[in-house]
Design a protein around this nucleic acid. Structure first.
Lengths: 230, 230
DNA sequence: TGTACATCAGTGAACGCGCGTTCACTGATGTAC
DNA sequence: TGTACATCAGTGAACGCGCGTTCACTGATGTAC
């Protein structure tokens, strides 16, 4: 209420009046407040409803006008986190074969994107490993989706070789696994330190290159390896 | 107190009397209680001191006879978690070159070890991503140690090729990254389901093989890649 | 345009609860004589 | 061996606090006439 300003129909976009505008502004304030509170240390699960509403500048009871409870807010955050990430990934995916420079530039793009959107990634990576069931499962689904999409792309990258679809999944999983851990490392980077960021981009690019080199050499092990003659 | 039984000097090991014995039994009960409470859903940070003491069968105030607070108990858990893991890793490391079956058997060993010690790994992986500063840093140190040790081992595995030590670190990091994510997948396995476990062992082995294949092909990129002629 | 009423986002007080920490205590174990 | 005292792990009551949720409310915005 303290924040609210009465204004009749004005050109500027951000400060509309009216029930709907007020509603969506408070809703957004709750979301922003949660993300901000997830600073260096906190887990979403450790945030209290009162804390979020306080940071958003509303009274605790107002929360229920927007979400059924913290779980519900958590799901909203998962959705927001991955909505933009999915678009970002689609852009990267639309590129052709991963040449040397292309890997590097994609990695650089991803790194700067994570840093820019660090609040969302911080939320997602923590909830992935330690969140409440609902949010955790939601995030796992998103990641599984990435792995599948990536497997599809990989099939196009190595069309000549015969790689089974389960091996494509295996490789995509490997890449995404490393991406997740890399994301954690990106988030741990000190703010405003381009050297460390450049170094990380370099290392990640090389890791991807190792994987791609491995893929070019890949041959499906002879059916079931069972008891191969030593 | 309810748990405590008076017994004078007996042969059996587990039920000694005396101040020291009582002390260490309660201490262990607090540790066990914490690990047990870290079931499917919980983060260590979300455990309350009262909850732990209740599960351990002592009164809240008794906690302070053993730990300064929950943080201190957390550090103890990190230490316990990695103490055995370090030994385990040393055993695996003492093996020669990673042949096809050797990779598979090491992976199988690791998987069953994680399942057996799942309480410790569940704790460690959650705290790694979302714990309080002290425990999180302690776990990160342990992992950095693994990466360094692994890099040293890798140097022996590829003695003929020239791979810089920073590239060895890069590769070791890649392997450990995948190991961490794999650990999370192992912990998500349903109890008593050998088929899924076998499948996971298979996938992990292949992922490691992709990496090793990549390493055999690895050549250091020409100094600083800079603006390579397209 | 002006008035009466409906809507509904946000308010503020209240509730019972589990929390971490403190404190003087109890009573079994250990020790000195 | 027997007694008097010291040690100290664990007790139980108490404290003030922030929590999630409920409820009747207020007052600006929106609508019907």
């Amino acid at each position: 209420m303290a924040v609210y300003k009465k204004k009749a129909k004005e050109g500027g976009e951000g400060e509309e009046s009216g029930h709907d505008a007020r509603r969506s502004r408070t809703r957004q304030a709750l979301i922003e407040a949660s993300l901000d509170l997830l600073g260096d240390e906190r887990t979403f699960s450790s945030l209290s409803l009162r804390e979020v509403t306080k940071a958003a500048g509303v009274v605790p009871a107002a929360f229920y006008r927007h979400f059924r409870g913290m779980d519900s807010l958590g799901l909203e955050l998962v959705d927001e986190s991955f909505r933009t990430l999915r678009a970002q990934m689609r852009a990267v995916r639309s590129n052709p074969l991963p040449t040397e420079q292309l890997i590097r530039s994609s990695v650089a793009l991803y790194v700067s994107y994570v840093r820019e959107q660090n609040r969302y990634f911080r939320f997602a990576i923590r909830e992935y490993f330690s969140g409440a069931t609902t949010t955790r499962l939601a995030i796992r689904n998103e990641l599984r989706f990435f792995v599948s999409e990536l497997a599809t792309d990989l099939a196009l990258l190595v069309p000549d070789r015969r790689i089974t679809s389960s091996d494509l999944q295996m490789i995509a999983q490997l890449i995404v696994n490393n991406m997740v851990m890399a994301t954690d490392q990106i988030l741990a980077l000190p703010a405003e330190h381009p050297d460390e960021e450049a170094l990380l981009v370099e290392v990640l690019s090389r890791q991807l290159r190792v994987i791609f080199l491995g893929v070019t050499q890949w041959k499906h092990p002879e059916s079931k390896p069972g008891k191969a003659a030593s």
